[in-house]
Amino acid sequence: MSIQHFRVALIPFFAAFCLPVFAHPETLVKVKDAEDQLGARVGYIELDLNSGKILESFRPEERFPMMSTFKVLLCGAVLSRVDAGQEQLGRRIHYSQNDLVEYSPVTEKHLTDGMTVRELCSAAITMSDNTAANLLLTTIGGPKELTAFLHNMGDHVTRLDRWEPELNEAIPNDERDTTMPAAMATTLRKLLTGELLTLASRQQLIDWMEADKVAGPLLRSALPAGWFIADKSGAGERGSRGIIAALGPDGKPSRIVVIYTTGSQATMDERNRQIAEIGASLIKHW
């Protein structure tokens, strides 16, 4: 067993022997301040990774656009098919120029040779490549099948209805392509620590998230040296922004954090800054 596999296998073990965790309302004060600064709703939840206990939450059962955070769930569904012998990570998928959609920095470079399922998941999570996500959605049967996968996990809230990039439209009061912070946090925890996926697939999923290259201005910008984070960000229309993450000190994750916002007129930089400040408060009061 590799060191990384050992780390993920012992996530519940280490967490069980940690000192009790206590909620700190100071972080919620910052979440509410972010709402004021952005002029928009902000949803927040913080779960203990081992027990699933909610440590703090704000608007945990209000719907927010998922945006690209759905790509972690998508690759979880792909990995479940791999575990069941219905898919192979090494299978190569070929596609054409007509398949390319807006923001496809990886797939646009491989029109000639195609990409493997493993490479597509890596591109979808680490670079948020939209064509990679659409190609992977095709392998599982489309958005409705991802929703069905989530329902089978016990998540009857999260739903995907459309493809990239239309799913980022974020129309107010439109339930399409949305989740709730509580539902997303619980589902992410199941994917990373539950028995739904094999140990190898859980490790692969967290490795992809740990290698995320496009979430630097968010929670990662607030992390002290030595902290662990595996995350996936999302951005959408109407001032929408979000991030889902597993993080913790001492090089291992111990909490799940989900943050979503929508309806702001603020710039992307300002949305990023507010999420980073929430992260800084979380870490300060850990």
Score class of each variant (00 low, 15 high):
D174Q: 05
P253G: 09
A200Q: 13
K71E: 01
T116E: 14
C121F: 00
Y103L: 05
I278Q: 01
T178M: 04
V78A: 07
G263C: 08
P224R: 06
H156R: 12
G279P: 01
L199W: 13
G242A: 10
A230Q: 01
G142L: 02
I229G: 01
C75N: 00
L282G: 04
V106N: 07
C121I: 05
D174A: 04
G263S: 08
A185W: 00
D177K: 02
L111R: 08
D207P: 01
R238T: 10
A123K: 04
G194P: 10
A211K: 15
D212K: 05
H285S: 11
F58G: 04
C75F: 02
S80C: 08
K109Y: 12
T116F: 05
W208Q: 01
D113Q: 12
A34M: 15
T27D: 05
D113G: 11
F149S: 07
Y260V: 07
G194N: 11
G279K: 03
I259Q: 02
I171L: 15
R273V: 11
I243D: 04
T116K: 07
P60V: 12
E169G: 11
N173R: 11
R81N: 09
I275K: 02
T116W: 04
Y260K: 01
D177S: 02
P172C: 11
E119M: 06
H156I: 10
T262L: 07
S240D: 04
G216P: 05
W227M: 01
V101L: 11
D269T: 13
M153R: 07
E195S: 14
S264P: 04
N98G: 13
E61Q: 15
R159K: 09
E119N: 09
I275N: 04
L205V: 06
E61G: 13
M209K: 00
C121A: 07
D36P: 05
T186V: 15
G43I: 00
M180P: 04
L89G: 06
H151F: 11
G52F: 06
A276W: 08
E35R: 00
I256R: 01
V42K: 02
E270W: 08
D207Y: 12
A200W: 08
E61C: 08
L192R: 01
T27L: 08
L199F: 15
I259L: 12
E46V: 09
Y44D: 03
S221K: 12
A235K: 01
C75D: 04
M180I: 10
L135H: 04
V82N: 07
L188E: 00
G43E: 03
L146M: 10
A123H: 03
W286K: 00
K30S: 09
L205H: 01
D129H: 00
R220L: 06
L49G: 06
R59L: 03
I171Q: 15
R273P: 04
L197R: 06
L188H: 04
P224A: 05
R162H: 09
T112N: 13
A230G: 12
G85E: 11
G234F: 00
D36I: 12
N98P: 13
V31S: 02
R59D: 00
L199P: 14
A215N: 06
T69P: 05
D177L: 00
R176T: 06
S254M: 11
R189H: 14
E195K: 11
T69A: 02
I259Y: 04
A77S: 11
R118W: 15
I259D: 02
I283M: 10
K213F: 09
E270T: 13
G114Q: 03
Q97G: 14
E26F: 11
A280Y: 13
E62N: 07
Y44Q: 00
G263Q: 08
K109N: 15
G141D: 08
L135A: 06
L146G: 02
E145P: 09
T178W: 02
I125H: 04
M184K: 00
A230P: 00
P25E: 15
L136K: 04
A133N: 02
A34G: 07
A230K: 02
F228P: 01
L150A: 10
D129C: 03
P65G: 02
I140A: 07
E169R: 11
E62D: 10
A185Q: 01
T112W: 15
K30D: 03
Y44A: 02
G142A: 05
G263R: 07
I243C: 08
P172V: 12
T158A: 05
A148M: 11
E277W: 07
R81Q: 10
H24W: 07
I54E: 09
T147H: 07
A222G: 10
A200V: 14
E56Q: 10
N152K: 14
I278R: 02
G76E: 00
L79D: 02
V157C: 10
E270R: 09
V106T: 10
N272D: 11
I256W: 03
G279N: 04
E35L: 02
E166V: 10
A84G: 13
N168F: 00
Y44N: 00
L89R: 06
L192Y: 08
R202W: 05
V72W: 06
A77Q: 11
R271A: 10
G248Q: 00
H285K: 10
C121S: 04
G263F: 05
V214D: 02
L191N: 02
V42T: 06
I140F: 10
G234C: 05
A211H: 15
I275M: 10
V31E: 01
D48T: 04
G141K: 07
D250T: 13
S281K: 15
S233A: 08
Q203F: 08
R176N: 08
R41N: 10
I243S: 03
L100W: 08
N168H: 03
S51T: 14
T179A: 05
A245C: 12
R273H: 11
K213D: 06
N168P: 01
S254K: 12
L89E: 06
A222L: 07
H110G: 10
R159C: 07
I206D: 03
E277Y: 08
S201K: 07
V29P: 03
S96L: 13
E145M: 13
D174S: 06
R271H: 07
H156V: 12
L191R: 01
F64Q: 01
T147A: 07
P224C: 05
F228Y: 15
V42G: 02
A183N: 12
V214T: 10
A222V: 15
I125F: 01
R59K: 10
G39E: 13
P60Q: 15
I206E: 09
I243V: 12
R220A: 04
K190T: 15
K53L: 14
D174V: 03
T107A: 12
M268K: 07
R162Y: 02
T147D: 08
E210I: 15
D207V: 11
L160S: 10
S254Y: 09
P60K: 12
L282P: 03
T131A: 11
L79E: 00
A200R: 15
L47V: 15
A123Y: 02
A280I: 13
E237N: 14
T138S: 13
G52E: 07
E195P: 15
A245Q: 03
D99P: 05
S57N: 09
L192E: 00
S51G: 09
R241W: 02
L146T: 03
L28K: 15
Y95Q: 04
L136A: 05
K30C: 07
L199A: 14
I283N: 03
R189W: 13
I93Y: 07
L199H: 14
R255P: 00
E270D: 15
V157T: 12
A230C: 09
L47E: 06
V29F: 12
M66H: 05
E119G: 10
P143C: 07
M66T: 07
N168E: 02
L100H: 05
S122H: 13
S96D: 14
T187Y: 02
E119P: 00
Q203V: 10
M153S: 11
G226D: 14
I125D: 03
A215T: 07
V257D: 02
S128A: 01
A34P: 01
P165K: 07
G39P: 03
N152V: 12
Q37S: 14
T158N: 02
M66P: 00
G226R: 10
Q97K: 15
V157Y: 14
D161F: 02
I93M: 09
T186C: 14
T187Q: 06
L219Q: 04
R41C: 06
E145C: 11
I256S: 02
T126S: 11
I229Q: 00
G251S: 13
F149V: 09
A123E: 02
G52I: 02
A215W: 01
G248F: 02
K213P: 05
A182C: 13
S264M: 07
F58N: 15
T261G: 04
L137T: 08
G216A: 09
D83W: 01
A235S: 09
E108A: 15
M67W: 02
L197E: 03
W286D: 02
R271T: 10
Q203I: 09
D174W: 02
F64N: 00
A34Y: 07
V258C: 14
G154K: 07
